[in-house]
Design a protein around this nucleic acid. Structure first.
Lengths: 152, 152
DNA sequence: ACCCTTATCTGGAGTCAGTCAAGTCTATGG
DNA sequence: CCATAGACTTGACTGACTCCAGATAAGGGT
């Protein structure tokens, strides 16, 4: 009993996520949402499109952006835009984790919050400012690139 | 006595900055560096080019990017890339301040460090990571946009 | 003061990520 | 099963930036 991880499960999960968000269920949305789920995160629109295409056969660039936007707006996926890189997408986990970005190879790694759930959210800004989110990005070198660096 | 702020001074300052960085002094570099100094900061390449052009008469797009890159590499200016916006430039003050970005109008405002000079720099990342910088970006609504917001 | 070397600038084409618009298709409620 | 709002496809387009080749000029040496 109890459905094991048969490969059917992620599909059912994706479907449930779309349904509970009140979104129409389409092949494109299913394929993209599953592609995001199955990846370790941090894939950009193009990579996700390619993966989704293996399932749906075809998927226009425009639809890719439409769907990713819709999923983001619905709170199902989190879009991380890192300067100098295309936007990356991952399943929204509501843990407000941050990211480390390697300046050399561009690799991205999750970094859990150092100080509770909302780090650095106190600022000296006047109360009139409506601060909704603090995005922390750590820049540096990943172990591989550090080892390969000329002089350090 | 003592040279007042005659308008000559910023020029001398810009010149000194270039010289001490071992950079060649060109009209384009002077004009751009002064444009960055004189602005309140947070101007993008295009706005800076326009201002510099008023001084030099002409300034190619390519030169603008070249110069900004060179100045950034030399540590004279700080380049802030905020996702969804063109890169902005300001004089490097080495105070590692952060930025607040209005989601509605895109305005940028400086935010001084909340916790000492290097906030949130402790992470749970393995020691093999070479963490060079932590960039904190606060997202939300500026007072104007908050007041103009439909419902809040 | 002038030349030489080499860094810098110009102009034009090209790239990349993403958006806009118009028309066709389809998921869902009745 | 049909109607229709919403979603998809195609193709043109934009903004921000980069690459290249050739012209120009800054600064050291004489």
């Amino acid at each position: 009993m109890t459905t094991a991880t048969t490969g059917e499960e992620p599909m059912a999960l994706a479907l449930a996520r779309l349904r509970t968000s009140g979104m129409r269920v389409t092949a494109q949305r299913m394929a993209l949402l599953m592609a995001i789920s199955e990846s370790a995160g941090h894939l950009d629109a193009d990579a996700l499109r390619e993966r989704a295409q293996r399932v749906t056969g075809s998927l226009s660039l425009q639809a890719t952006y439409n769907v990713l936007r819709a999923l983001t707006d619905a709170g199902l996926v989190r879009c991380t835009q890192i300067s100098g890189h295309p936007a990356r997408y991952e399943i929204e986990r509501h843990d407000n984790h941050h990211h480390f970005v390697c300046r050399s190879c561009g690799a991205i790694r999750d970094v859990e919050c150092t100080v509770g759930a909302a780090p650095c959210l106190e600022t000296h800004l006047p109360a009139e400012y409506d601060i909704q989110e603090a995005a922390v990005t750590f820049w540096g070198l990943c172990p591989d690139c550090r080892a390969a660096a000329p002089a350090s």
